[in-house]
């Protein structure tokens, strides 16, 4: 799989690397730039991380800055919160985003609320990295998409990069942010290659990207769904249907302006996300359109494609059926564009 990259500064020197390598590059730059940055997580040292994202960083920066933690997600996340509160900038890797369920207390009750509860007298500049999503055959407890859970919590910022360039830029932005940020990394994207700018840069949190221009239907997608939406859009183009594809990139804060502008242009909206469909990210996007002046521009009911109302199953055919695929996106987008919904 190759990513479409959207580099705003053409003069910037780029290098092809995978999504995982881009994240590692971001962490190496951060460790070099700022002595208060530390990495924490299970098996991120010699093992290199469950998905080989930290890789050789322990050899380059040592065990004091690339710290293996015990299998203690609640405690580990809490140590990261306490360290952030007192002067370090920790990046804490959850081995799978599912395991963040063990650490909800520290993320939701502590990290997200400390600044507010203390009236602005404290800051928690922590980054939680969360390998996320299905498609690996790992079944129900290693495949979930929790971005809507965390997106519901004031005090957190939640991003979902879909390309190597954004994986690096959003991670560096998360680290530069004075508040807690959760980065959902899609496991199926780790090996995806793309052009990545060299050196330090940030991708702004809260800004979506229009990754394909079109006039007939707007598809708002995130993480791996961006690539499936682009695949669907390419097929629809052969039929003369021009889909506009928006890479959401940030769930909280959400980029209302970009979505509203696109819907005003196309009059049709399809939301595609891997999290469970009900009460998911697509519900928020649908509602923000329904509440905005873009509502008057709608020529068809808003459509949502999301995860099934079921845990992620083991059987590969069932697993594929449990989350949106390119063919399904193509089908719904075509019907929307043709006024058949």
């Amino acid at each position: 799989m190759n990513a479409q990259t959207h580099i705003s500064q053409p003069e910037t020197k780029t290098r092809e690397m995978s999504y995982a390598e881009a994240i590692r590059d971001a962490m190496a730059i951060a460790l070099e730039r700022d002595p208060t940055v530390i990495l924490m997580g299970e098996d991120i040292g010699t093992y290199g991380g469950a998905f080989q994202v930290t890789g050789d960083l322990v050899e380059r920066f040592g065990k004091d800055r690339v710290m293996d933690t015990p299998i203690s997600e609640l405690g580990g996340a809490g140590v990261a919160v306490g360290a952030a509160l007192t002067g370090l900038k920790p990046i804490y890797e959850f081995q799978f985003s599912d395991f963040a369920a063990l650490a909800m207390e520290q993320i939701v009750n502590q990290a997200a609320k400390l600044r507010y509860m203390l009236g602005g007298e404290a800051a928690v500049p922590v980054v939680f990295r969360m390998p996320s999503g299905s498609g690996t055959g790992a079944a129900a407890q290693h495949s979930q998409s929790f971005e809507a859970w965390f997106g519901h919590v004031p005090g957190l910022k939640v991003v979902q990069p879909s390309t190597p360039a954004d994986a690096k830029g959003l991670l560096l932005a998360a680290l530069a942010d004075p508040d807690p940020v959760i980065v959902f990394e899609h496991k199926l994207l780790y090996k995806m290659k793309g052009e990545v700018p060299e050196g330090y840069y940030t991708t702004p949190i809260g800004k979506a990207a229009v990754v394909r221009q079109g006039k007939d239907v707007t598809i708002v997608a995130s993480a791996i769904m961006v690539h499936r939406a682009l695949e669907a859009a390419a097929k629809l183009a052969k039929e003369g249907i021009e889909a506009e594809v928006i890479d959401l990139r940030s769930v909280r804060p959400i980029d209302r302006e970009t979505i509203i502008a696109s819907v005003k242009k196309t009059g049709k909206l399809l939301c595609v996300y891997e999290g469970v469909r009900t009460l998911g990210v697509g519900a928020e996007i649908s509602a923000l359109i329904a509440e905005s002046d873009a509502f008057d521009y709608l020529d068809a009911p808003i459509q949502r494609l999301g995860g099934a109302e079921a845990p992620i199953p083991y059987n590969p055919d069932l697993e594929r059926a449990a989350v949106p695929q390119a063919a399904g996106i193509e089908d719904v987008a075509r019907k929307l564009a043709r006024g058949q919904v």
Binding site: T36, I38, D64, L74, G75, G76, A77, G78, V79, A80, V81, G82, A83, A84, L85, T86, G87, L88, P90, E105, Q106, N109, Q110, L114, M117, L118, E121, A122
Partner: peptide, 29 residues
């Protein structure tokens, strides 16, 4: 915070890992 009190906590046990994080900061710096 100015006198080093990082805060009371409404969650029983909530401050325990946070204290360890504060200790980690002191050691690392």
């Amino acid at each position: 915070v100015k006198t080093g009190n990082l805060g009371a906590n409404g969650i029983v046990g909530g401050g325990l890992p946070i204290a360890v994080g504060a200790g980690l900061t002191a050691k690392r710096l």
